[in-house]
Write a protein that binds this DNA or RNA. Structure first.
Lengths: 376, 376
DNA sequence: CCTGAGATGA
DNA sequence: TCATCTCAGG
């Protein structure tokens, strides 16, 4: 039995906007931690991972883990029936054959209820290997979107070069070549670039959601994933959840690129598994106090960004220069998630999939994209 | 070696918006005076002439005349990659095989550089014959755009009738007929409506005739082009550059219309008698105007209009009534240049191509459109 | 509140 | 590929 009440239907709508282009059907894995979705696109070049923290819901209850097999096209249609500021409640029984969505106007004078059929989706519960990235770039999401859209006019792919100088996007097209350099903002360092040990992100561990609704965010729960995406760059290590079998992402054009893909963390099925390691303790969300600051001190309804850091420049943290080439088509699609956060974080290492991460109050959406091997 | 720095990329973007629909490839002729483009559309019904004065650039250097053969579709794509307020620098070597465009954010934290291949375009450097028009109408460009867009919903062509009463746009369509009358604004005359015998257009030799009517706007050359578009209506003379061989514009539908192309109006100057006086003097501002005054008292960045005259009504100056019919498709396209100037000037003589002129701080864009002969 | 751009559907 | 509708920005 799942029951999750979201204060803004807009959040779901925005999440789906980008995901539905990538995958047509996916499991929404619900458990006491919240709702997660992981799926690879049909060509196995890109992977998307979404997490909605239990604590971010106005109300959240999930008696036991349930995968909800959803056709994203249908869900998109149903979500179109919601107004952006409707309070949206998701409900599903333990048999998970029907997902009920209730939209309630803020003023309660309107209640709409939709039910959609669920399906069984073979759970390729992909584990996403932990990766320590060589370079992390945080920049305004609108700017990232603008750049990839611009370059997509000229060519098929973009070479992204991260160096101390800044981040450069280069595209060679038939008619014209283009290259855009974003210099690291002067005061970027001021932000919070704590690298270091902390950089590894821990899985979910969060709360026992007793008081889910109320965010006593203090505790790590939310903090863990929530912030995973943003503030602490992972100088040294970045880890993703490692449950799931290994993901094998094909190379953009060739598969040999394979090695680049996420290396494995075994242990699939338990999606919660992620936190086992350092996070194991996570449950005791307390520890992290590091960011005791409550989940972003209360969610801002506009969902722009999650983090308290409102620096809007370009911040680069890197161990070494990285240059990789990616398909612009995918990046343009990822950038549709810009409405979820004012900032986006790009994490790169040579021969490893790019991680494009948008963090928002209640969770995150992350995209992984295998590099093109030819580097052309 | 060309190097031209424009303070607002928006200017180029707007110029291209309209031109690219008319022509796919064109030479940007660069010389010490600035950058000019002249091209006829594929059907030879319309001609477009653009001039960007050297003085209007933030920086301009052109060692020797170079024609840059540009594919406008490619250039449009590249320009889409610029933000409107980017500082845009054009560069080309003497071999003119590559055009480099650099976009620099006002805050300099972003630098984008694009290079596009140039091509050799057989220079049909068209000379545009000088014409003295029988009627000149200056009106808000937004209004003109609105009218032609509206009428294009009803029919294919519009009959434009200019008389003392005002200017009337008439369209007969299958489903409906429409006609819009714009009366001359009450105080329009205040502007400058000089008429005069001078109204006859003359072919090339213009300028020196200072005495003829008033308008010896100094020698035709510069004056004509630079400010020709706006303030002084060309009752008497409008001169365009007369280099190049003469343009031969085909009739809109038939070619026999050929003679219709810029030929002179025989000077029926009857009605003008009224005000030539005041204007005569106006012309006097002679030569200085050419470009002595820095592009219109310093460029206003918003590029709305160029002239010092901020009268926003309809002003008509004419020697005789004129009625001509034009293809709305072209006029609608021309009106895309409305963003370049708050005003547009229409110049007409019977059986001669219509001149639609938008003047802005740094230059102008002019369109010539052959009338439909049937007058239907 | 209006205008322009982007996305979606025919 | 073009036109219509929706969303975002000024």
């Amino acid at each position: 039995m799942l029951e999750a009440k979201l204060s803004e239907a807009a959040l779901l709508k925005r999440l789906l906007d980008a995901v539905k282009e990538l995958v047509t059907d996916a499991n929404f894995d619900c458990n006491e931690e919240g709702i997660q979705l992981q799926a690879m696109d049909n060509s196995h070049v890109a992977l998307v991972a979404v997490k909605l923290e239990a604590v971010g819901f106005k109300r959240f209850r999930c008696d036991r883990p349930i995968p909800l097999g959803v056709n994203l096209t249908s869900l998109t249609k149903v979500l179109k029936c919601a107004k952006d500021d409707d309070i949206c409640t998701l409900k599903a029984g333990d048999d998970a054959d029907i997902l009920s969505l209730t939209y309630e106007a803020k003023n309660s004078d309107r209640i709409a209820e939709y039910e959609m059929k669920l399906m069984d989706i073979d759970a390729d519960q992909l584990g996403i290997p932990d990766t320590d990235y060589d370079a992390s770039v945080t920049m305004p999401s609108a700017e990232f979107g603008r750049i990839v859209r611009d370059l997509s006019l000229l060519g098929e792919s973009v070479r992204i070069e991260v160096s101390k100088e800044g981040i450069r996007f280069v595209s060679d097209g038939e008619a014209a070549n283009g290259n855009i350099l974003l210099k690291q903002s002067a005061d970027a360092s001021s932000g919070k670039k704590k690298k270091g040990s902390s950089s590894k992100r821990r899985g979910g561990g969060d709360d026992d959601d007793d008081e889910p609704d109320e965010p006593e965010e203090e505790e790590g729960a939310d903090a863990s994933d929530g912030e995973g995406g943003k503030r602490k760059i992972k100088k040294e290590k970045v880890k993703k959840e490692e449950n799931g079998e290994d993901v094998e992402m094909d190379g953009a054009d060739e598969d040999e690129e394979g090695e680049g893909e996420f290396k494995p963390t075994k242990g699939e099925d338990d999606e919660e598994g992620e936190d086992e390691d350092e996070e194991g303790s996570s449950k005791k969300r307390k520890r992290n106090s590091g960011k005791s600051k409550p989940a972003k001190k209360a969610k801002k309804e506009d969902a722009d960004d999650d983090d308290d850091d409102d620096f809007d420049g370009v911040r680069i943290e890197m161990n070494q220069a990285v240059t990789l080439t990616f398909s612009l088509k995918y990046l343009v699609n990822f950038s549709k998630s810009s409405s979820l956060s004012k900032k986006v974080q790009l994490m790169m290492s040579n021969d490893v999939p790019l991680l494009v991460s948008y963090a928002f109050n209640q969770g995150f959406i992350r995209y992984y994209l295998a590099p093109k091997i030819g580097d052309d």
